[in-house]
């Protein structure tokens, strides 16, 4: 393979019902930094049906080029039509790097596309860096967050990576940026479209996105039961926060999975994170330690959470939280 032909940093723009997902803007922000290292360009891959209008948003957030694939086959995400379109872009445009958000869509698409392109894919990266030689250094947690590994894909192109939402920073919108818009129409083989979407259901309980919250009140095993978590909700309301939790309360059926913080849940980076009754297993820390300020309350003064917190209180969450709510309501 002639690696030199493959260049520029491509970002898959994930849109759902015409709304660009925040992770894609975060990836554009990172792509700007990666591309600058060797004077490369940032290219957004915008797929969907009637999505031309979003191309300028991609440019305003850092894209130099936007490849638009506008087709009724791409109205909503389905594995095969999206893979066909991106595979053909890969063959024609020869990207050096393709970045994809590690969402349920990106984690379905990424491996399928990488296998078709016969290249490597590194999942759920938390740090990306461009080496002097032009290799993407992709760092990700392994062994349940106990270790970090930096992965390279030296001999194959494109270099592909999925990145968790909330890890990279989007650059501020700049309307004066200029970019090129390229329309691309792939040849679809619809005989391979073998999965049919019958129904998409949004559940009310799932509509909150904890990665967007400025303040999170997060509960763990020490909260006890559903009633205990109710006290956390009440506290969260008084300060305009969202609630989240460690895995323990999700396993116990008290909190839904979409509010889980950690290795198998979401990565959050709020301004303020309350870790209440959370011991601080490494799997949990992996999802919240980048928070700007962490306040922890735990009965066990040796709990590992105190190693990662800015303000630690040794005490019983069940006693302190109701008092705190009462005090704030005064």
């Amino acid at each position: 393979m002639d690696k030199a032909k493959y260049k520029d940093v491509y970002v898959f723009i994930e849109q759902r019902e015409g709304i660009i997902q925040s992770v894609s803007l975060e990836l554009l922000g990172k792509a700007v930094e990666l591309a600058a290292k060797h004077g490369e360009k940032v290219c957004a891959l915008l797929l969907g049906d009637n999505i031309q209008g979003l191309a300028n948003d991609c440019i305003a957030h850092g894209a130099d080029k936007v490849i638009v694939v506008d087709s009724p086959h791409l109205k909503y995400y389905m594995t095969e039509p999206y893979t066909q379109a991106l595979y053909q872009i890969g063959e024609k445009f020869e990207p050096g790097i393709i970045l994809i958000g590690a969402t349920t869509i990106g984690r379905d698409l990424g491996p399928r596309l990488s296998a078709r392109l016969a290249t490597g894919l590194t999942a759920d990266c938390t740090a990306l860096e461009m080496s002097e030689e032009g290799n993407l250094m992709m760092t990700r947690p392994a062994f349940g967050g106990n270790m970090m590994a930096t992965i390279v894909c030296k001999e194959h192109r494109p270099q592909m990576s999925t990145v968790r939402p909330g890890v990279m920073y989007a650059t501020a919108r700049n309307e004066s940026r200029k970019g090129e818009i390229i329309n691309f129409l792939p040849v679809f083989d619809s005989s391979k479209f073998r999965v049919r979407l019958l129904e998409t259901v949004k559940e009310e309980r799932n509509l909150v996105d904890i990665t967007e919250a400025n303040i999170l009140v997060s509960g763990g095993r020490g909260v006890g039961d559903a009633e205990g978590f109710g006290k956390l909700r009440e506290f969260a309301q008084t300060i305009g926060a969202e609630v989240s939790s460690s895995r323990a309360l999700v396993d116990a059926g008290i909190v839904t999975h979409n509010r889980q913080v950690g290795q198998t849940g979401k990565t959050v980076r709020p301004d303020l994170y309350f870790a209440l009754g959370i011991s601080g297993a490494i799997q949990h820390l992996a999802g919240m330690e980048e928070s700007d300020y962490i306040i922890a309350i735990n009965k066990d003064k040796y709990a590992p959470i105190f190693q990662s917190s800015d303000l630690g209180i040794v005490g019983d969450v069940k006693k302190i939280v109701p008092l705190l709510t009462e005090r704030l309501k005064r």
Partner: peptide
């Protein structure tokens, strides 16, 4: 196609006030 270039454990940040 992918290789591990290096692996390391994440260092804990300095603990705050307790």
């Amino acid at each position: 196609p992918t290789r591990v270039a290096k692996s390391f454990t994440r260092g804990a940040k300095a603990a705050g006030q307790l």
